[in-house]
Design a protein around this nucleic acid. Sequence first.
DNA 1: CATAAACCTTCTAGTAACTGTAAGGTCAAG
DNA 2: CTTGACCTTACAGTTACTAGAAGGTTTATG
Lengths: 129, 129
Amino acid sequence: MKIRDAAEKTDLTEKTIRYYEDIGLVVPCRRSNGYRDFSEQDVHKLNFLSRARKLGFSVDDCRQLLSLYSDRKRASKDVKRIAEAHLHEIEVKINELSKMQETLQFLVTNCKGNDRPDCPIINDLAGKL
Amino acid sequence: MKIRDAAEKTDLTEKTIRYYEDIGLVVPCRRSNGYRDFSEQDVHKLNFLSRARKLGFSVDDCRQLLSLYSDRKRASKDVKRIAEAHLHEIEVKINELSKMQETLQFLVTNCKGNDRPDCPIINDLAGKL
DNA sequence: CATAAACCTTCTAGTAACTGTAAGGTCAAG
DNA sequence: CTTGACCTTACAGTTACTAGAAGGTTTATG
């Protein structure tokens, strides 16, 4: 299967698929003309990557997950460990963003948003209270 | 004031401050020996940047905010517009992360995390259900 | 059959916002 | 006078791609 079809089947771009080959994640065979030839197996892996990335796993996490995916003797605790670590990162990010959101919402609400210069947002950023 | 002191007063690293000079955000004078010499004004601006970055504004947003900060004739609506756009981005990110969190939490909860290979996380990523 | 469109290839550079490291100049203290 | 703390620049690396250029191959059309 050529790269375009692989891209369509996996909801990845051709660029991304080539990139994943570059970094050694999924390396397809080549035809005699030099074109990449993706097997069903390759497409499965790309789909796996596509889904894992959409859950926010880093490419490095994906590499490990893909290795576990291909390992019939894997221990589910190894998978779970990676997922839990990622879950923790997500929680941390959500907390950070929520704090920003709260502060910003307060400032925006109190900003009149008119043609005058006085602005609680600027004041806050300037450290003036 | 030398860069080390500026860094301490603004909760930025020296690297970051040099970077901000590189991209033209805060450009201090130089002493005869080539050392940077930060004025109080410079430190105010760096502090402004430090706070804006901590609220998640992009460096590009910061550039605009800094310009508005220095503009006595600014209209608060210009500031508010930037802040609202950023607030919206934050909301979008939180929503994305929350979805990931929900899915991942479900999968992690259902993974036994033992030495056996069967794993709902891997199954989900593989598209098997 | 020629050619043009559609597809494929590699390579380099750019993105965001820094961080790390190396090589080297300056200055105050002992 | 030399040691150590501080300063400088410059270049590479980080993440995960994306854009674009230059060019080879295949397929469809006139």
